[in-house]
Amino acid sequence: MSEHVERAPVACPSCSPDRETVHEVLTTGGGTATVRCTECGHTHKAPLEDENTVEPTVVVSQDGDSFTATVEMPGDERVEKGDEFILETDDVIMQVRVTAIEVGPEERVGRADAGDIDTVWSRAVDNVSVPITVHPRDGEGDGTRSLDLQLPGDEEFTIGETYEFGEEEFEVEAIHVRDSAVANYDFQKLGHEGDTVLAKDVKRVYGIDKSSKAWSAW
């Protein structure tokens, strides 16, 4: 997202009329700005070029629901599938990941300049839902069960490690990575001890039951 310009290269009529120096932007409006030279402290008016900004539509998916917003960005900024950015609206501030880019009716691409984009499809990744399939230890117990955990997106799952969430305890044996995050890992399906995946990148975790009920006598 673009931010208010605080510094700009401008020629200073006091100390450098023939070359640009760094100026602090104090106020803007009417096509000109009040700026202060950082070399000599002189304050004066100067024209500033407005940055070409656009506001493409952003569709955000979160836990099965979705909402629509807009994001302001430079028109020449390159947006790619898998990019992450902070989306700020009147109601929410969240980190989202680009899952698709639409540049025309039913025309989706992997990357595009912001000025060419109609809609950015995205997924909230600061807090995510992680589906987990837990298999019984050595075939014991009631069988396979599914969990759905709400976790921070930067939570890590490592194959071979044991995790506890409330009464649930399991050892991770495999992880399936989301399509939008495959480029960050060696493979989409990971099964080697020590392989680590962030919760926001997980499509599904597979684990072996280590909870106390898995050891109960039946």
Rank of each mutant, 00 (worst) to 15 (best):
H4E: 14
H4L: 15
V10E: 07
V10Y: 07
C12S: 11
D18C: 07
L26G: 01
G30E: 09
R36W: 00
T43V: 14
K45S: 14
D50Q: 14
V54T: 15
T57C: 06
V59Q: 14
S61Q: 03
Q62P: 04
D65A: 10
D65C: 05
S66T: 10
T68Y: 09
M73Y: 05
G75I: 10
R78N: 13
E80N: 13
E84F: 06
T89N: 02
D90H: 09
I93K: 15
M94I: 11
V96S: 11
R97V: 11
R97Q: 15
T99R: 09
E102Y: 03
G110M: 05
D113G: 09
G115A: 11
T119I: 15
W121N: 13
A124W: 11
D126R: 02
T144G: 05
R145A: 04
P152T: 02
G153N: 01
T162S: 13
G166S: 05
E168F: 01
E168Q: 07
E168W: 00
E171V: 00
E173H: 08
A181L: 04
Y185W: 10
F187N: 15
L190F: 07
G191Y: 05
H192P: 03
G194M: 08
V197G: 00
V202Y: 00
K213R: 10
W215N: 01
W218I: 09
